[in-house]
Design a protein around this nucleic acid. Structure first.
Lengths: 200, 200
DNA sequence: GTCTATACTAAGATAGAC
DNA sequence: GTCTATCTTAGTATAGAC
C-alpha cells in the first residue's frame, strides 16, 4: 500500500468518524446546542481539523441527515426480505418499540431534527429533514398499496404520524412505556385493516 | 391615579408585553435561535431593560411556557361549555384543523418547545414543557372517562399523540393539508368509539 | 493532510447614569 | 423604573506552521 493511498484511507476514515459522531451527538443534543468541538471530541479529531472535511457546521448537519437516511434505508431494506408487506410494517413498529428507551430520552432522530431545522429562517436544511421523512412515508405507502388497501397514502400518513406522535410524547414525558402502549395499538390497527375485495 | 400606581401599571404592561412576545417569537424561531433582542424588539422594550423583568433568558422561556399553558386552559375552558364530552373533543380537533397553517409553518407551540428543551443537558425547563402536555392529556382523559369509555388514559394518549404526530409531519413537510386529513380521520375515530354497555 | 493558535462575531448579562 | 454602554464568554471559522 503506498503512502498516498494510506493517507486517503485514513482521511476518509476521519470523515466517516466525524459523520457518525455528528449523527449521534446532533440527535442527543440538538443542532443548536452542539458545538463543533463536541463532535470533534466524539470523533477523536482535533477541532480545527474539522474544517478540512466540512467547510461549515451546516455541512456536518447535512452529513448527519444523510447518515440517518442511510440507516433508514438499511432498516427498510432488511424488512423487504419479509414476504408479506403487512409483516414488514409490523416489524417496523416492533423496531420502534425496541428502541423505546432511546426515543424516550432523545426522540426520533429525524423528527426532532426536522423540528429544529424548521425553526430556521434560512430554509437551507429544513427541506432535507422533510425529505428523509418523506422517504419513509413513501416506503410505507408502497407496503399498503401492495396489500391492496384503499387510500394507501392516507394509511401511511396515519402510521408515520402515529410514530412521530408517540416518539414526541415519550420524549416530552420521558416515558418509554408510551412507545409500547401506542406501538401495540398500531399493531392491532394494522391487523384490523381489511383487504378490499375484488377490484379497485 | 397616583404616579406610583401609574408606574406599576406600565411596568406590568411591559412585563406582559415581553411575555406575549416571548411566547410568539420562541414558537416561531425556537429557543436557541431567538435572542433577547428579538424578543425585546417585538415587545418594543430596550434590550438591557429586559433584565429588569426577567433575570435570565430561561425565565423568559418559562414565562412563554406559562403563556401557552394559559392559552390551553382558556381553550379547554370554552370547550367545557359544550354538554357532551364527545362534542368537546370534536371541537378540540376542529380547533387544531383551523390552525393548520400555523402548524404547518411552526408546529405545535408546546410540542416543538418540548422537543427543543428535551435536548438540554440541564434538566431545568424540559420537565415544564412536559407538564403542559400532561395537562392537556389529563383533560382529554377526563372527557373520555365522562363518556364511560374503557381505558380513557389510552384513548387520551392516542388522541394527543395523533395531534403531535400530525403537527410534526405538517411542519416537516410544510403541508397544512396533513392537518385536515389526519384531523378528519381522528373525528371519524371519535365517532366510532362505542360507549361500554352497563357497568365497568 | 494534520494540527495549533488565534481572529472575529454574536449574544447573554451587568454596571451605572438618569 | 428606564435605558445606554460595555463586559465576558463561547463558538464558528481562518491562517499558517509542520
Amino acid at each position: 500500500m503506498t503512502n498516498s493511498v494510506n493517507r486517503r484511507v485514513r482521511a476518509s476514515q476521519k470523515r466517516q468518524r466525524l459523520t457518525a459522531a455528528a449523527a449521534r451527538v446532533l440527535h442527543e443534543q440538538g443542532v443548536e446546542r452542539t458545538t463543533l468541538s463536541d463532535i470533534a471530541r466524539e470523533a477523536d479529531v482535533p477541532v480545527g481539523n474539522v474544517y478540512y472535511y466540512f467547510k461549515t457546521k451546516d455541512e456536518l448537519v447535512q452529513a448527519a441527515l444523510s447518515e440517518h437516511s442511510a440507516h433508514l434505508d438499511e432498516l427498510t431494506g432488511q424488512l423487504e426480505q419479509l414476504a408479506d408487506p403487512r409483516d414488514r410494517l409490523k416489524a417496523l413498529i416492533e423496531a420502534w418499540i425496541d428502541r423505546r428507551d432511546v426515543a424516550a430520552r432523545y426522540g426520533c432522530p429525524t423528527g426532532t431534527l426536522a423540528v429544529e431545522l424548521d425553526k430556521r429562517a434560512d430554509g437551507i436544511l429544513d427541506a432535507e429533514a422533510g425529505a428523509v421523512i418523506r422517504r419513509l412515508l413513501n416506503w410505507t405507502e408502497r407496503q399498503f398499496r401492495e396489500l391492496d388497501l384503499p387510500k394507501p397514502a392516507d394509511l401511511a400518513l396515519t402510521l408515520i404520524s402515529g410514530y412521530q406522535g408517540m416518539s414526541l410524547l415519550a420524549n416530552a414525558l420521558r416515558d418509554p412505556d408510551i412507545m409500547t402502549r401506542e406501538g401495540t395499538r398500531l399493531l392491532h390497527w394494522l391487523d384490523s385493516l381489511q383487504v378490499s375485495d375484488g377490484h379497485h
